[in-house]
Simulated scan of single mutants.
Amino acid sequence: MEKKLTALSRRAFLGTAAIGLATPAIAQVNSTEYEAEVAPDWAPMGPVRRNASGFRAQDWQPYFSNLRNGAVLVDISSRALHFWSADESVYKLYPTSVPMTEDLTRRGRTKIVRKVVGPDWRPTPSMKKRNPEWPDYVPPGPDNPLGTHALYLSWTYYRIHGTHDTRKIGRRSSNGCIGLYNEHIAELFSLTKNGTQVLLI
């Protein structure tokens, strides 16, 4: 009888422990945003929000009529980038940084027109107006806000690029571009080509 009680107690304990361990994960998935201080090199100081909800797989059909040249969907609200290869054999989902404000955000259809490893960076005229203390030019390297790779879009000044400041990912922290972890942009860079269609929603 004592052995049976011990076995039952052990099962009950393990079941309770499993529920306890699962709770933080459930809480994290269900949480929407939290505030955190961030001081990136090329963005204003102050609290920003990191999104932890709505990060889920998507189907391409509601957004594209075909997958010719592959397709990239950037969801500004969930701060996620989805990629589908032309033959549907590859699907990727990456967390991103998105523009800080709605007036810096652009939505609609565009495409990749240029791919650069080790991009250099120049602030746009409007960036310089807002931040006159910023440098006129930053060469490739660890201080470059475009990270290790950049995908140039057909819209002037807009890019999907990496970042050396990993605190930016998952946040409204960019001046208009879409940012990824350097390892993710390197992978996306290898999967896309000039002509890959891009939709920002």
Rank of each mutant, 00 (worst) to 15 (best):
A7V: 12
A12F: 04
A17Y: 11
G20R: 06
P24S: 09
E35H: 09
E35Y: 09
A39D: 12
D41M: 05
A43D: 08
P44C: 01
G54E: 11
F55W: 13
R56W: 06
Q61D: 07
A71K: 02
S77L: 11
A80C: 12
L81W: 02
L81D: 10
H82K: 04
H82V: 04
D87Y: 06
E88H: 11
E88T: 13
S89T: 15
S89G: 11
S89A: 15
Y91R: 10
Y91G: 08
K92L: 14
V98Y: 04
P99M: 06
E102V: 13
D103P: 02
R109Q: 12
K115P: 05
G118Y: 02
D120Q: 02
W121T: 03
M127T: 12
R130E: 07
P135R: 00
D136Q: 02
D136L: 00
G141P: 00
P142H: 01
N144M: 01
P145G: 03
G147T: 05
T148S: 14
Y152S: 10
W155H: 03
R159G: 02
H161M: 07
G162A: 10
T163D: 05
R167G: 09
G170A: 08
G170K: 05
R171I: 04
G179F: 10
L180V: 06
H184R: 12
I185G: 08
E187I: 07
K193D: 14
G195C: 02
Q197M: 07
L200D: 06
L200F: 13
